[in-house]
Design a protein around this nucleic acid. Structure first.
Lengths: 153, 153
DNA sequence: GGCTTAGTTGACGTTAACGTAAACGACAGG
DNA sequence: CCTGTCGTTTACGTTAACGTCAACTAAGCC
């Protein structure tokens, strides 16, 4: 609080951050409303963002790109950002981290499952394409109807 | 359309599906409103869902658990479910599949990045905990303030 | 000084994805 | 016959995550 503008300390206005991370300024202010970021202010009330704030915002956006709601993200950030000194507090925080890691691992495996599903669909179409081209060269039509209903069960 | 209830063909009412997949019946009907599923109907208008419908619904829900909007999911499903016979159509569909696969790969790698971030946070707290316990045994306090702002930059 | 541009707060609008409630029909049990 | 349960449609309510607009201030520029 005593000496917060030393010149060497790099910071950016809201517009720069918005442009860099490709979100609107409104969005950033909204995140502040929810208590997700607390940027610094000049004595005239103008926001400026440290590189820490920037990293934080990036983490928020990354979290958002999956199911995580802003509330869940806030949960994470709060737990990790607070200055927890107590031994029990530390252990609880670490436990929470492990939990989140497990959730993410779950998500990753689910994504890989989704990937597999789509791959199967695609391959069935590649198969179709192969048969199609064969028919065009052979000029002999054999009706093959592979129903999509049997996939991924 | 000619003979759709053969006894051997297994199907479920909406409530069973809702319970199994842990969503409300309203949600399932809403998906139907959007054209994401078209279950069969008895002559009295009661919906019943084939195992294909069930797989489809699972795919929808799985897609939803990440950023995918219902519109995007509809896009996918339509493209894969339609009976595309033309050669060009098949190729376009396959191309679309490749695109989706790439998107998913992107998501996966982003998730792993997020995982890494959280891991780093957690490790910093584990470090803190270690110092804390050391202080408690040593009874000698050395102030170490590791600012969180320097993480993941 | 006047204009433009970038920032602020505050209020209201909007969209997706459902929740909830009303009003109805079919069927089973007592 | 009455009640309850499960299904249907229609319609309106709700919440999160912003968009949009108005009214204002301060800085820079000619």
């Amino acid at each position: 609080m005593t000496r917060e503008d030393r010149g060497r300390q790099e910071s950016w206005p809201i517009s720069a951050l918005a442009h860099e991370l490709d979100v609107s300024t409104r969005t950033i202010r909204y995140y502040e409303e929810l208590g997700l970021i607390l940027p610094g202010r000049t004595e005239r009330g103008i926001r400026f963002y440290s590189r820490g704030d920037r990293a934080r915002l990036r983490l928020i956006l990354r979290g958002k790109r999956f199911g995580f709601s802003l509330d869940q993200i806030r949960e994470m950030i709060e737990l990790f950002a607070e200055d927890r000194t107590g031994c029990m507090q530390l252990m609880r925080t670490i436990e929470y981290g492990n939990q989140k890691l497990a959730e993410i691992d779950e998500k990753i495996s689910e994504l890989m499952q989704l990937r597999e599903d789509i791959l199967v669909y695609k391959q069935s179409f590649e198969q179709k394409l192969l048969e199609e081209t064969r028919r065009m060269t052979d000029e002999c039509s054999s009706s093959t109807s592979s129903k999509w209903t049997e996939i991924s069960e």
